[in-house]
Design a protein around this nucleic acid. Structure first.
Lengths: 254, 254
DNA sequence: TCGCGGCCTTGATCGAGATCAATCCGCCGG
DNA sequence: CCGGCGGATTGATCTCGATCAAGGCCGCGA
């Protein structure tokens, strides 16, 4: 059910119950009074401008965040200023988990476009977790999903050639857009080619060349940030480098 | 079936209170009655022979595990049999988290040597989490640590040259051994060169060559699986590819 | 309107590391 | 004690993608 007027949007932002994302998000499987209590621990949404940091690497941890609208990138930066993009985060996705270990953010999160997030102050959240086993379980599930996704990304970084990385990246974005009830074939990349390159462990030039190559192959239509996937089937096929190449077949390790 | 004398040994092994690892492990910061209750939910330790699977990819999830002794490797295998090693797990480390998302293991865990694990049946653990906020917090901390470690590994896989990968890997192992009150300079690699190569996203040959090169440089002493670190300082220096090379300096992304 | 500064693309060249190939070594079983 | 096998090493060559270099495109501000 679509509530149409923009007027409702502000209202929507406050209540998990009326949030279109609730089934993908922390409240999944939680309702009634429990949901109301979860709602109450969510602090006023923060709005971020493009490029604005949600939290900085090394900064004091005090809350987890769920993307509400827009998109974020997370990255780490080493002593000499080298940046590694860790991920892109769409609405419904949780960020900040890597900070619980020692109360300091191990990474930085920045808005890729004008975005809003729900802030979950950790002390309040903790209280609630103690009282709501279902929330506790759901949080673990969400975190587990994140870990599993990171494992997938290790496969990509480990031994996939550039083209496969690109294909897998685009499919992943496409799937996530589709879940958000958007068109999975029309991507509006909010991140730069540099971000994509860093995320995939490639050089910008390679990313650029791959976009052209995929366009020439009739798989994509590329116009700056606007990507249309013309042939999901071919893109899909491209994800598994079906050949022997790319190594480490079963049994080779051990 | 256990004879009574072995039973005593098991009894000893059963108790978190008397476990040397407790401070690194789930029980950290938990004591008294709570600790006893945690103890009770830990099922009989499982012992694994070298190469034996603790759980298989796709298998039904029902418990988390903490390595008790020995070491494990986790990996995923794609449709065409390609293997990507995700990590090596030493005593005190938690495995199985990626299965909570959908009740099925997204990866496989195998013993690298004769090993034992503490099994935490998830339904019982859940019960306990509801009753012990401190355990709940500690579990999240441990999981967060794992996520942060994975982020570090993405940096490695993303843009580090082979030699840096190797150095970082060895330092990480050394640190983890040291925390276990073993000598951090004497590593006894339980994994094969293939495993290391897969984990680091390199070819076996490259790993082998790096070992020889590091030995020639006087940094390591290598004798098959037995590695001695002669110059921690040089190894440390090698971890940050201090030069400009390795790209993506600050500001380049975005 | 123009010019400037990002980002992005395209082309040319280079090199780290993969792949191919040939031993070597340690271990286990007969 | 020998033979074979799987893991590890070493060497030769090749290749993918990085790097270097040179514009092009777009948006924005003067």
């Amino acid at each position: 059910m679509e509530t149409s007027s923009v007027l409702d949007l502000n209202q929507l932002r406050r209540s998990c119950a009326s949030c279109a994302l609730s089934e993908l998000c922390l409240p999944a499987g939680i309702d009634g009074d429990d949901l109301r209590r979860l709602d109450d621990t969510i602090r006023d949404k923060r709005t971020l401008d493009r490029g604005e940091a949600l939290f900085r690497q090394g900064g004091q941890f005090h809350a987890l965040y769920v993307v509400r609208s827009g998109s974020l990138r997370t990255f780490v930066e080493d002593a000499s200023g080298n940046v590694q993009v860790l991920g892109f985060h769409l609405p419904g996705e949780l960020v900040g988990v890597d900070a619980l270990a020692n109360d300091h953010h191990a990474s930085q999160a920045e808005a890729l476009e004008r975005s809003s997030v729900c802030e979950l102050p950790y002390d309040r959240l903790n209280l609630l977790l103690g009282q709501m086993p279902s929330l506790q379980r759901q949080l673990m599930r969400v975190v587990s999903r994140e870990v599993a996704a990171e494992h997938q990304h290790m496969v990509v970084m480990g031994r996939q050639p550039a083209q496969e990385r690109m294909a897998i990246f685009l499919r992943s974005l496409s799937d996530r857009y589709a879940r958000l009830q958007r068109d999975g074939d029309t991507l509006n990349l909010s991140m730069s080619r540099y971000d994509i390159a860093s995320y995939l462990g490639l050089a910008v030039e390679t990313v650029s060349r791959l976009f052209t190559r995929l366009e020439e192959a009739g798989i994509l239509e590329v116009s700056r940030k606007a990507i249309t996937i013309r042939r999901q089937d071919l893109l899909e096929a491209m994800c598994s480098n079906s050949g022997t190449r790319g190594g480490n077949r079963k049994g080779e390790a051990l």
